[in-house]
Computed example of a mutant assay.
Amino acid sequence: MATEDLIILQKTYDMINYGYQAIAQFPKSEKYALGTDMKKCMHQILEYTIVAHKKYYKKTTLQELDVEVTKLKAYTRLAKDLGFLPFKKYEVWSKYNVEIGKMVGGWIKSAKQ
């Protein structure tokens, strides 16, 4: 499982890198409101990924990671619907989020065994 952990860590890093660039283009008022919430979410995803990788008992951490990924998906969609995030950027960011979500789901399944 170690190599998959490294893949999810890299995907998370790439998603955060892209997310920061997208948030930088938000209107000033939203950079410090919705943008801050989204950044916190991304940081939590990175943190939970690292913690889950290092812990022996992963179940709770993986569930928290799954919640954060779901929250970020909702925030990203909200940013698009409010017009702060162009559709193309939403599409790219969503692909990252969905891919990470699938990896987390697989990780949860393998941790249950």
Rank of each mutant, 00 (worst) to 15 (best):
M1E: 09
A2R: 13
D5L: 13
L6C: 08
L6N: 13
I8F: 03
I8N: 00
L9M: 12
L9G: 08
Q10G: 02
Q10R: 11
Q10V: 02
K11A: 08
Y13F: 13
D14S: 08
N17I: 01
Y18K: 11
Y18H: 10
Y18W: 08
G19R: 06
G19C: 01
G19I: 00
Y20V: 14
Y20E: 14
A22I: 00
A22R: 02
A24R: 12
A24T: 08
A24W: 04
A24P: 07
Q25G: 01
Q25Y: 00
P27T: 06
K28N: 14
E30H: 05
E30M: 03
E30T: 02
E30S: 04
Y32M: 08
A33Q: 10
L34W: 04
L34Q: 01
G35W: 00
G35Y: 02
T36I: 13
T36L: 14
D37T: 05
M38A: 01
K39H: 11
K39F: 07
K39M: 11
K40C: 14
C41D: 13
C41F: 00
Q44F: 08
I45H: 00
I45C: 01
E47G: 06
E47S: 03
Y48H: 13
T49H: 00
I50G: 05
V51L: 14
V51K: 14
H53W: 11
K54I: 02
Y57Q: 15
K59R: 12
K59S: 11
T60Q: 13
T60Y: 10
T61F: 01
L62K: 07
V67M: 12
E68F: 15
L72H: 07
K73E: 11
A74L: 12
Y75K: 02
Y75S: 06
L78K: 13
A79P: 08
D81T: 03
D81K: 04
L82F: 09
G83L: 07
G83Q: 03
F84E: 01
L85R: 02
Y90W: 03
Y90V: 01
W93H: 09
K95D: 14
N97G: 06
V98W: 06
V98Y: 08
E99P: 06
G101L: 06
G101Y: 01
K102C: 12
K102S: 14
K102Y: 14
K102F: 10
V104C: 09
V104R: 04
G105M: 07
G106R: 03
G106F: 05
W107G: 06
K109R: 11
S110F: 04
S110H: 08
A111V: 05
A111E: 14
K112R: 07
K112D: 04
Q113T: 10
